[in-house]
């Protein structure tokens, strides 16, 4: 029996069915929303630079002015994900750059195991806001990196800082974590990647 007007049993049943349908829609909608949070989170972090996200794609090497009045200290940190038997380090720990100026930094990696491996470096920038102004025109982190057993390689990373970078940023830290992707890569992909010449 509904509250506003005492109804017959059949209309109550119809009311109930309608309410249930609506509530089930909410449930399905919230389930979809839960998964939609994944792309929403990506977009949100990309736009705001929260969470130290960097633009992990090739930036255009366009014409730009170099702001020689400012110098920013860019530091490099490298980490190996737990249990990965590689050596991975930057050639220099930090460089001083003017906003707009292009720099190349080499990263050294060595596979200490006796089997071929594929790795992926994932970047993160602190402070998070600075990530929006770090543009990479070339980076080993754009692709997976294969390395044959026991071999070593130098991997280049070319970048410039957007001249619009906020005035209060004097130092920024770029961190790379190297992950073992061998298990996630198909064997034939490993083979074809290895066929490519690696940077020496």
């Amino acid at each position: 029996m509904t509250a506003p007007n005492p109804n017959t049993k059949t209309t109550t049943r119809a009311d109930n069915a309608r309410t249930v349908r609506r509530l089930l829609l909410v449930v399905v909608g919230m389930f979809a929303f839960g998964f939609a949070l994944v792309p929403l989170y990506e977009v949100f972090c990309d736009i705001t630079g929260f969470n130290g996200r960097t633009k992990n794609e090739q930036a255009a090497a366009n014409q730009r002015s170099i702001d020689t009045s400012r110098t920013i200290n860019v530091q490099f940190i490298t980490r190996i994900n737990q249990g990965m038997p590689w050596e991975f380090k930057p050639e220099v720990r930090s460089v001083r750059v003017h906003p707009g100026e292009t720099k190349v930094v080499q990263f050294y990696a060595k596979n200490l195991t006796d089997h071929d491996m594929v790795a992926q470096a994932v970047p993160s920038v602190a402070p998070g806001q600075a990530g929006l102004y770090l543009n990479k025109t070339e980076c080993f982190c754009f692709n997976q990196q294969p390395l044959a057993a026991g071999s070593e390689t130098l991997m280049p990373m070319q970048f410039y800082l957007d001249p619009d970078i906020p005035k209060h940023i004097h130092t920024l830290t770029l961190s790379y974590t190297m992950y073992d992707m061998t298990a996630h890569t198909q064997p034939d992909v490993v083979a074809s990647l290895e066929a490519r010449p690696t940077a020496e």
Binding site: M1, T2, A3, N5, P6, T12, D15, N16, T19, V20, L23, L24, V27
Partner: peptide
């Protein structure tokens, strides 16, 4: 929990006694 919650909502919205606003 979801089934229980739907049941509560439908009951409260549709099954109140006359005058129970």
């Amino acid at each position: 929990s979801i089934m229980g919650a739907i049941n509560v909502i439908v009951t409260v919205m549709n099954m109140r006694a006359p005058g129970m606003t």
